[in-house]
């Protein structure tokens, strides 16, 4: 039986399913936070959520608006400092992080600094790294959740704010980033994507229901590989949708955006 859902609900479900129980995830507000909360209510009750401003293992009553607001450490086990959270990432204790950006390239490098112009005189100045560069350098697995279009999926990012696989195999290690860390999955409104083990370039793992391969390639500004066999993304289950709509995001702060 098919159940109606929107693209944002599917993206949150895809992200939630990737988070294993008993792991740690440094999350931001919005989709990542909703995904972690959904995972806790389904297969991963022992997933530990951390917010970079200092919240450890909060029991979130509602979606925080900011990673630094009081919701982000509501009924937490600890309210600490930003350096403490980042040092925990640096010691190798944080498994997942979720990031976004205005641009992403085939190696999962992200831009959130500026679009167009030059660094000193940008056409559009964006916020900058925030914690993204640190989390992508120091957590084990980087997940990106983003809309899929040619403006975002580009051959070359205007500014490499946050490292993915940089220029390809071995580049992170050569730069000095911790071995074994790096991009893991990209979840878009069209597909779930991963990275080729040999080339470290992005490839499609599964197409969302009703989406064609041509559609994904049209929305991508670089050459995209395909995993064999290419599968279809499982749609949200009725139970996932119920939890998402009734418990995780009843005010539709995230899932109402589409």
């Amino acid at each position: 039986m098919s159940v109606g859902y929107n693209a944002m609900e599917l993206m949150v479900c895809c992200a939630a399913r990737l988070l294993e129980d008993g792991r740690t995830a440094a999350v931001g507000t919005g989709v990542p936070c909703a995904a972690a909360m959904l995972a806790q209510r389904t297969h991963a009750p022992s997933l530990v959520i951390l917010f970079e401003a200092g919240g450890i293992a909060p029991q979130l009553p509602t979606m925080p608006i900011s990673v630094g607001d009081s919701r982000a450490f509501h009924r937490a086990v600890m309210a600490t400092s930003m350096a403490d959270i980042m040092e925990t990432c640096q010691r190798g204790l944080i498994d997942y992080t979720f990031l976004g950006g205005a641009q992403i390239d085939a190696y999962g490098n992200l831009n959130s600094t500026h679009i167009g112009g030059e660094h000193a005189r940008p056409r559009v100045r964006l916020p900058g790294s925030g914690g993204a560069n640190d989390l992508a350098s120091l957590c084990w697995r980087i997940l990106v959740v983003t809309n899929h279009d040619r403006r975002r999926f580009v051959e070359k990012v205007d500014f490499l704010t946050t490292p993915g696989y940089l220029t390809g195999p071995g580049a992170r290690e050569a730069a000095g980033l911790p071995p074994g860390s790096g991009p893991y999955r990209v979840i878009t409104d069209l597909a779930v994507l991963g990275y080729d083990d040999d080339t470290k370039r992005m490839r499609i793992l599964s197409l969302h229901p009703g989406v064609t391969l041509a559609q994904v390639r049209d929305a991508t500004g670089f050459e995209l590989g395909i995993r064999d066999p290419l599968t279809a993304t499982d749609p949200p289950t009725a139970e996932e949708l119920r939890l998402l709509r009734e418990e995780v995001d009843p005010l539709r702060y995230v899932i109402g955006r589409h």
């Binding site: 640096q90 790294s129 560069n133 350098s137 500014f159 946050t162 992170r172 730069a175 000095g176 980033l177």
Partner: peptide, 13 residues
């Protein structure tokens, strides 16, 4: 010392 920034334009600037 830190283990982030390395390899990025954020480091370069």
């Amino acid at each position: 010392p830190a283990r982030s920034l390395l390899g990025s334009d954020t480091f370069r600037y």
